[in-house]
Design a protein around this nucleic acid. Structure first.
Lengths: 250, 250
DNA sequence: TTGTTTTTGATTGAATTTGATTGTTTTTGA
DNA sequence: TCAAAAACAATCAAATTCAATCAAAAACAA
């Protein structure tokens, strides 16, 4: 892999997640730690990013408070942990559905050496999936420019001819009354169908999604296993009655 | 392979992938490393690309400026002329199918300001289509890692629910007896179906494709209009009986 | 055709990039 | 606080890529 190609990939990941670990980049580019370190040093000199212990972070954050920045950085490293945990659930031979979205995207590097079949409606996932030599099927449908997700009747039709061992999706809200919710009705429809086609359903969500509700209902709380990482006592108490939560050990 | 042809190919690859390795170009052009090096040096002097260790990369990586680079390649490229001509056939309101492939990819920038709906099985087309704010539907199916085309029953099913005013595809061979042919049977099947769903069918092919035959038959010669740019007298005479050729004025 | 010019591909040693290894520093968790 | 673990910078040898050179091949002109 050529230098500019690596650099582009690094910047790209940073754009998505605010932070990247060196380990992650080593896998993504299949080059050595030394090379990635050199890349990061150079990109830092070019003011493209800031090196931090263990990886790199975005440079000029929006003129927000530091705490907000810290939070988003923290969120994404937690997202990474969640994604990693989720990926470990996948076994050789599984056929899985990976929904469009940034959290689920983070699963892909961890699926590298598994013998699996993946179906997705996320266009942004495709390059990574192909890079990792994973057998990939794409759902058809209309491309939503903003999220690069495939939606609409085309997606639903196309999806309905598959069955999954497991499906993984991000979500915007998890609420005791409202269930799992997401802002976009069309994406919600795709999620609903994917859930109904899957034997096991996993929702990837960090703590910020709890007690939030959004416009379109995707499923009831008891329809999926939630993979999350942190939940304060009270919330845990409420949710554990109604849901099946699996907490990533920190 | 002639020098301008090599240069065109190099720029074309860059437009698609932002980076190319020398090794890759050696294979693609079946010329030696030395020759490719000389080409790259020259193209760099002409500000068409930037050399990097192991290959070359686009000068500016922003999509807006990318089209500027494409533009410079544009005038010198036969394929580009063909693609431009094809794009001009498309009218506002049309629903068109654009097949996966490098020639058809070049059509996309020219579709920018048209009010159209595009369906494609080419994953590499998606970014460009979205960038140019074109309403885009994707066919589902299995991702072929090499060509990044969608194929298989998923693609066929998904495709069959659409109808097109026009469809555009590249091809590997155009032969009086064998008709239109392409090496991959699965991609051929997709092409066949797309053709049957389209009112008008356009094959984009430079002269090198004439009198060549490949493994899988896509269609008979009379089923499509060929858009090409150059054809010597004898060939033209033979083909004009059997086909509907539209030659791009030089 | 013949002689000239241009282009090509192989070869060489130099330059660059890479990945592994070293010992040091920082972070982590008890 | 301390010790183990992780991440680090520095270094070096191996691998890759590079520019320069030259002879053969091809294209060209007379």
């Amino acid at each position: 892999m050529l230098t500019p190609e690596r650099h582009r990939k690094i910047i790209e990941r940073l754009g998505e997640k605010q932070v990247v670990t060196i380990q992650e980049l080593v896998e993504a580019t299949s080059s050595s730690e030394s090379t990635i370190r050199r890349d990061l040093s150079q990109l830092q000199k070019e003011k493209k990013l800031k090196r931090v212990h263990g990886g790199a972070s975005l440079l000029h954050q929006k003129s927000e408070e530091l705490s907000v920045v810290e939070k988003s950085a923290r969120n994404s490293s937690e997202k990474e942990k969640i994604a990693h945990f989720a990926a470990n659930i996948v076994n050789d031979g599984d056929c899985i559905y990976i929904d469009a979205g940034t959290t689920t995207h983070l699963m892909i590097p961890h699926l590298k050496d598994k013998e699996i079949t993946v179906v997705t409606n996320g266009i942004s996932h495709l390059d990574a999936l192909i890079d990792h030599q994973i057998t990939t099927y794409v759902v058809g449908g209309l491309v939503k420019p903003k999220t690069k997700a495939l939606v609409g009747s085309g997606a639903l039709n196309s999806l309905s001819s598959y069955r999954f061992d497991k499906c993984f999706m991000g979500i915007n809200g998890i609420h005791l009354d409202a269930g799992f919710t997401t802002p976009d009705p069309e994406e919600a429809a795709v999620k609903r169908l994917a859930i109904s086609l899957s034997q096991e359903v996993f929702i990837l969500a960090d703590y910020s999604k709890f007690n939030e509700a959004s416009f379109s209902k995707v499923a009831d709380l008891n329809e999926a296993v939630i993979i999350t990482n942190e939940l304060d006592e009270d919330a845990a108490y409420d949710f554990e009655d109604k849901t099946n939560i699996r907490v990533v050990t920190p």
